[in-house]
C-alpha cells in the first residue's frame, strides 16, 4: 500500500467532497419538498392526483437510479439542442452542464422514495388531532403546517435519516455522467497514479465517516424532538 499520492491530490479530493455534499444536500432538500405534496395528495387529494402520485412513486422505486440518471442526462438532454434558439437563451449554460441533470435525477429519486414514506406518515397521524385542530378554527393550511406535517415527520424521523444515508450512497452514480464528485475524483486519481485500491479505499473511508456523521446528527435531532406519544 502506498499513500504518498495523497498530498498531491488532496485539493481534488476536497473539491470532490464538496461536490458530493452539494449534490446530497440539494437533492435531499428539494426531494423532501416534493415528497410532502406527493404524500399528501395520496391521503386527501382527488382520486386522479393521488393515482398520479402513486404511479410516480412506483415508477421511481421500480427502476434503477442509474437508468433514471442516464435517461435524464443522455435521453432528455439529447432533446434540448434541437429546440430552436435555445443555444442563445440564458438556460443554455445550465442545459449543457451535467450537474443540474444529476440534481434533477437524484431529487426525483428522493421524492419517489420519501413520498412513499410520507404517505404512510400522514396516514399515521391520529384523525382526532386533525379534527381538534379544525375545531380550533385552523385553516387547512395551518392544520398542515402546525399539526399534520410535524406529527408525520416525528413518526418517521428515523426512516428519513436512513433515506438520507441512501441518498449519500447514491451520489457516486453521478460520476458516470462526468461529474467529478468524490468517487469521480478517485477514478481520476486511479487513472493518474495507476494505484488500483488505495484511492478506492480512501473514498470508501470518507463515505463511512460521512455516514457516521449523518447518523450522529440525525440522532441528535431525534433526541431533541419529543417522542411520539402514540406509536
Amino acid at each position: 500500500m502506498d499513500w504518498s499520492w495523497i498530498p498531491e491530490y488532496s485539493d481534488r479530493l476536497i473539491s470532490g467532497f464538496w461536490l458530493t455534499l452539494q449534490l446530497l444536500l440539494m437533492s435531499a432538500t428539494m426531494g423532501f419538498m416534493l415528497a410532502i405534496p406527493i404524500g399528501l395528495v395520496q391521503n386527501t387529494g382527488p382520486k386522479w392526483l393521488s393515482m398520479i402520485a402513486r404511479g410516480f412513486c412506483t415508477t421511481i422505486r421500480g427502476t434503477p437510479l442509474l437508468i433514471q440518471l442516464w435517461l435524464i442526462y443522455y435521453g432528455v438532454g439529447s432533446l434540448f439542442p434541437d429546440i430552436d434558439g435555445i443555444r442563445e437563451s440564458f438556460l443554455w449554460p445550465y442545459l449543457r452542464a451535467a450537474f443540474p441533470y444529476a440534481v434533477t435525477a437524484f431529487t426525483l429519486s428522493v421524492a419517489g422514495y420519501t413520498g412513499e414514506i410520507m404517505r404512510g406518515a400522514f396516514a399515521g397521524v391520529p384523525k382526532g388531532e386533525l379534527e381538534a385542530a379544525r375545531a380550533m378554527g385552523m385553516s387547512p393550511f395551518k392544520v398542515l403546517v402546525r399539526i399534520w406535517l410535524p406529527r408525520a415527520v416525528q413518526n418517521v424521523f428515523p426512516t428519513l435519516a436512513g433515506e438520507f444515508v441512501l441518498t449519500l450512497k447514491a451520489t457516486p452514480l453521478a460520476a458516470t455522467i462526468t461529474i467529478y464528485e468524490l468517487f469521480g475524483r478517485s477514478t481520476e486519481i486511479r487513472q493518474d497514479t495507476f494505484r488500483v485500491y488505495e484511492p478506492l479505499l480512501l473514498v470508501a473511508g470518507i463515505y463511512i465517516l460521512m455516514t457516521a456523521v449523518i447518523v450522529v446528527i440525525f440522532r441528535w435531532f431525534e433526541n431533541r424532538i419529543p417522542k411520539p406519544s402514540i406509536a
Partner: peptide, 9 residues
C-alpha cells in the same frame, strides 16, 4: 455504509 458502486469496484 459504503456506496454499492465503490464496493463493486
Amino acid at each position: 455504509a459504503v456506496p454499492e458502486l465503490v464496493l463493486i469496484l
